[in-house]
């Protein structure tokens, strides 16, 4: 019995040390506070990027922030439900180009780096966002 407990503890420790999906992406992103910080970092980057800030001229930033946090939370397996429009709808009229998309990806990576999100978790999130490319571009 004692041995079994020890083995179980060792296993738990091993799992805890490796970055296996035992920790959900939501947890790896730092849960609600971490996702809010990543979102704020991204917004800061956008605000200081003259090449894309123009697209967000007519955007209600507090609402955009709240919806983005909701979406990242839901995507990463957190206890939230995204209440915004579909990707196609929400990007219609923004006229985002592939260059804008590239820049947004870079800004998101920078924001995640600033929050010290592990590289593997960054890639897990990017893998979920990348397929949205055709729904977001040229609308």
């Amino acid at each position: 019995m004692k041995t079994r407990l020890l083995v179980a503890c060792a296993l738990l420790l091993a799992l805890g040390c490796s970055q296996t999906p035992s920790q959900s992406l939501y947890q790896q992103l730092g849960e609600e506070a971490g996702i809010a910080a990543i979102t704020d970092g991204l917004l800061h980057q956008i605000e200081h990027d003259p090449l894309i800030v123009g697209h967000f001229r007519d955007t209600d930033i507090p609402r955009f922030r709240r919806l983005l946090i909701e979406q990242l939370c839901e995507l990463s397996g957190g206890p939230c439900q995204y209440s915004g429009a579909t990707m196609e709808e929400s990007h219609t009229g923004l006229h985002l180009t592939t260059r804008d998309f590239d820049r947004l990806v870079n800004h998101l990576i920078t924001a995640m780096q600033q929050q010290k999100v592990p590289y593997s978790a960054q890639n897990r999130l990017l893998a979920m966002l990348a397929p949205m490319y055709p729904e977001v571009i040229d609308r």
């Binding site: 590289y119 593997s120 897990r124 990017l126």
Partner: peptide, 9 residues
Amino acid sequence: WLDAIAGRN
């Protein structure tokens, strides 16, 4: 392929 092997691309 993002996140393909051990969280690597």
